[in-house]
Design a binder for these strands. Structure first.
Lengths: 276, 276
DNA sequence: CTCATTTTGGAACATTTATTCTATAAAGGT
DNA sequence: ACCTTTATAGAATAAATGTTCCAAAATGAG
């Protein structure tokens, strides 16, 4: 009976256990098997979708070595170890019921809730690609890239999106001001000719955002915007108004489409700026 | 030449394309194949980790039917379709040269860029569903829901995520403090026993976030966190550390996985709180 | 230095999984 | 109602993947 076989009695039954085992055994293992351990520890997520051959190559060892590694951990073989990671996902598998039930998170498992939001995210992204036209995007990017300073405004739910956009602008060396966080709401003083406004608001629309955009527009400053429905009051004041419809889970929405759209815009504008 | 063969010319090369194809074809497909379509549409993330047999059974059809479904979509077979979902995990970070070339977004049309980010978003969401375990999620939600006040901290890129989470907490009547925006960074005074910390930081990790989390942890306050790689220094101080890997477009990342994960958490915590 | 022990990589083997084929059933048109 | 076309399920086959074995290399103790 070898060392390895005696460990075989205790096969990890959860990722946590596996990680603990990895940390504990790492130093006792021979060279090649330790290579497996260090690579695997850093790239756990690959196990579920890779073959032994792939994991072995990525770890820089022979397939048979990776095999022994699995057994040293207490598994019967690679398949058993892989199963541990695969079942994590298939347990999410909800019944065949089609409709997303309204969120009754109290009775639902949190895992199921995540699956719902992920699904919702997919839908939002799809819808985004199908609603936003290349032309509108291009026009918005062009318009904003010509501005001296871009004023980003978004309140409440839109604030996270606005701040992410503003962060990206900063990263790319595009001058921008993030309104709304620090009481800069009356923008008339800061918003100068040559600037541009990017306003984000969702139904029910923040009056502050709308009025700031209107003011800017009246003073001849170009206004662009993003919202979630066609009924947004910004339609009349904005040069271009992008639509990012977010799918709902119950009454709740994540911000996948919005974040994706604004990130795209920020990157595009950063790139256009560099050319000027 | 049959209908199926004529579609074979155009096999989806991205998740986005696949989804569009699914939506477009769903109604034209025969009964069993439509079952495949609707199930697959809702459980996209299972493809990477399941066999045909499993997908077929879950869809309620024979394996050969699921096979024909893949071919109707334009793939040569199931393996080819699965590859589309698996490669996203196995692709390692491209070298810096490639990254810089990809960031040269000026050469790309803005519309194309949006498609890239949408595709990237799909990947991030799939990866999210595949990496986050139900257990870790549940533990985090439980842990945070027991806190008197939840301190949310996220700087730079993570700030948008933190602020969205904090907004949701507010909406759901969960007491929370958003650190980082207004110089509240030395939390020792505000963070009291009975509270909990949720820290968000991405590589390269903000020292401020890490030290605030460490301080809290040393003082016996439970710490939870979210990051994007296993190498995060929070591993050692956090009770649970969730991983939200974001797929990259060039060197850039949107925040789809993060936003989805934190939204899920916030909703779950709100629901748990109501029960107490 | 030598021998016993452990570790290693590759080839052989076994198992699982994907794919194709075929007979049967269902659907659609005249 | 008949015939033609299309869809279906299960059995048969092909491909891939996992696992074991063994000879050779490395290691380490005496």
């Amino acid at each position: 009976m070898t060392e390895i076989e005696s460990q075989g009695a205790t096969a990890p039954t959860s990722v946590t256990e596996l990680l603990e085992r990895l940390d504990a055994d790492a130093e006792k293992l021979p060279k090649r098997l330790r290579q497996c351990a260090t690579f695997t520890r850093r790239h756990l997520h690959l196990i579920a979708v890779s073959t032994v051959a792939e994991m072995a190559e990525a770890s820089g060892v022979a397939a048979s070595a990776y095999m022994r590694f699995c057994q040293a951990l207490g598994f019967k073989g690679y398949s058993e170890m892989q199963a541990l990671f695969r079942t994590q996902f298939t347990e999410f598998r909800p019944g065949y019921e089609e409709r997303l039930a309204a969120v009754d998170a109290g009775s639902e498992s949190v895992g199921r809730l995540l699956a719902d939001f992920a699904e919702s995210g997919h839908k939002s992204l799809l819808s985004l690609a199908n609603t936003v036209t290349s032309d509108a995007l291009e026009a918005t990017a062009q318009g904003l890239s010509r501005a001296r300073i871009i004023h980003v405004i978004g309140l409440r739910r839109a604030f996270a999106v606005a701040s992410s956009m503003s962060y990206l602008f900063g990263k790319m060396g595009v001058a921008s001001v993030l309104h709304g966080g620090s009481g800069l709401l009356d923008g008339s003083a800061v918003i100068q000719p040559g600037d541009a406004v990017f306003a984000i608001t969702y139904a029910p629309f923040s009056p502050e955002t709308v009025s700031l955009a209107s003011d800017a527009s009246e003073r001849g400053v170009p206004v662009f915007g993003m919202t979630d429905t066609g009924e947004c009051p910004l339609v009349s004041v904005a040069d271009e108004l992008l639509l990012a419809r977010e799918d709902e889970v119950g009454a709740l929405r994540a911000l996948n489409a919005s974040i994706t759209l604004t990130t795209t815009l920020a990157v595009a504008i950063g790139a256009l700026r560099e050319k000027h």
